[in-house]
Design a protein around this nucleic acid. Structure first.
Lengths: 133, 133
DNA sequence: ATGAACCTTCCAGCAACTGGAAGGTCAAGC
DNA sequence: GCTTGACCTTCCAGTTGCTGGAAGGTTCAT
């Protein structure tokens, strides 16, 4: 199948698929006309990539996961470890964003939002912010 | 003051400060030796940038905020709007990350984590995942 | 006077794509 | 059989927000 169809079936943009080929993630065969030809197994791998990228794995981590996925002798403990590290990272991101959210919300509430030039948001951005020295 | 001191006082790396100058965010004067010379107002702006970047505003948004900050006739409603948009974006990110976290946690729990090759994580990454078609 | 610790500019690269130009191919409709 | 338009190809450049390094100038303490 052509790249367009592979894109439709995997949920990735054609450009992205070509990029994944550039960096050596998947290697489709080529037809006589030079067009890339994707087999079902290729599409499976593309979906795999689409999912794992969507779950926050970096492309390098996806490469590892793909290798583990293709290696029938792999240990599932490796995969579990990778996933758990990712989980911790996601928790950290959520914590950071939540703190940030609290600060911004405070700023929005403190701001009267009218047409006068005084603005607590800008003042706090320049002088300091709540709960911080 | 030299760039190193400005860096210390603003919490930004010297490289970052030069970059901000490159893209036209701040313009320090120069001494006879060619060294950048930062006044206190420059350091204030740098701190302002450091803070707003840390709060998740993009550099372009920081440029807007800085313009508003410097413009005595600005309306605080503008700032409030920018901040509220940012808040909504942060909420969206938190929601996404929370969903992602749920999925990954399910995967970790489903994986026995031993040395046998079967691994539910990889299977779900390739075939679909819980709560999703 | 020598060495370290600054400072300068410029060039290159990171992730992970995305956009666009210039051109080849294919399938449908007239 | 010819055109039209949608596809496909490669390559080059840009995005965001820096960061690293090279090659060289300056300043300061010893």
């Amino acid at each position: 199948m052509n790249i367009g169809q592979a894109a439709d079936q995997s949920g990735l943009a054609p450009k992205t698929i070509r990029y994944y080929e550039d960096i050596g993630l998947i290697r489709p065969t080529r037809g006589g006309n030079g067009y890339r030809d994707y087999a079902q197994t290729d599409v499976h791998k593309l979906r795999f990539l689409q999912r794992s990228r969507g779950l926050g794995f970096s492309v390098e981590e996806c490469r590892q996961l793909l290798a583990l996925y293709e290696d029938k002798g792999r240990a599932s403990a490796d995969v579990r470890e990778l996933t758990q590290a990712k989980l911790a990272e996601i928790d950290r991101k959520i914590r950071e964003l939540t703190g940030l959210r609290r600060t911004l919300e405070h700023l929005v509430h403190a701001c009267h939002g009218n047409d006068r030039p005084e603005c607590p948001i800008l003042e706090e951005l320049s002088d300091g912010w709540p709960g911080q020295a």
